[in-house]
Nucleic acid binder design. Sequence first.
DNA 1: TAGGCCATCTGGTCCT
DNA 2: AGGACCAGATGGCCTA
Length: 222
Amino acid sequence: MCTAMETVYSDMDSSSCDYFTQDDEDSCSSMHASSPSSSIGKPASPASDSQGPCATDMGQKKRRRGRARNEATVHVVKKNRRVKANDRERNRMHSLNDALETLRTVLPAFPDDSKLTKIETLRFAHNYIWALSETIRIADIEQRQNKSRADASLLLPSPCVIDAPSPGSDACSWSSSASSSSSSPSYCTSSPSSPATHDDYGCFQTDVLQYSYHNFVPGMSY
DNA sequence: TAGGCCATCTGGTCCT
DNA sequence: AGGACCAGATGGCCTA
């Protein structure tokens, strides 16, 4: 990677050198305007000013020198802007990669420890979030069913009790909105096998997460 | 060796 | 005007 960066940077430096060379050539050998990328000249040297074919009289020389200095200044400003923009873009991509890396640390790791690619990370995160929301949604449904069963067994058909706010109401509203996406194509509701050491909720949670895990297909587009 | 992934550069566009 | 964002291009590295 270092070699790649070095190559890129060396390329950039050489191209920027071409800009400066082109400035001097343009101001000296001819007055034609040419595109910066079309000329590759030799490095500018202070001695070339007095020895080039353009050195006919001092007046012209002064004017040409002034113009060259202006164009050189413009190119320097442009180059500086480009370098700064490249630096910002590099930092921006680094911060993006950092965020992606943070996301990887939150996601369950693959058994073979193979690092998820960027697109795989995003897709797996999508699946994972969906599975978590499904876990909450279904757990909330079960909780409500248990509560109504308990109420029925006590022969208390009071709607006030059923409609009373519960600690899980927030999770319910959130999961109900999340359930709008419960038709996620990468998830199947059939229950996979699960370790027997968990309690019901934990067991189910494990199932959902495992299913999210197993249904994640690297490279799959959805 | 082809293909995938990645980092970087670059020019354009939009926003503040 | 300058910065953020984006997409295309390019070249290096790795793996099947």
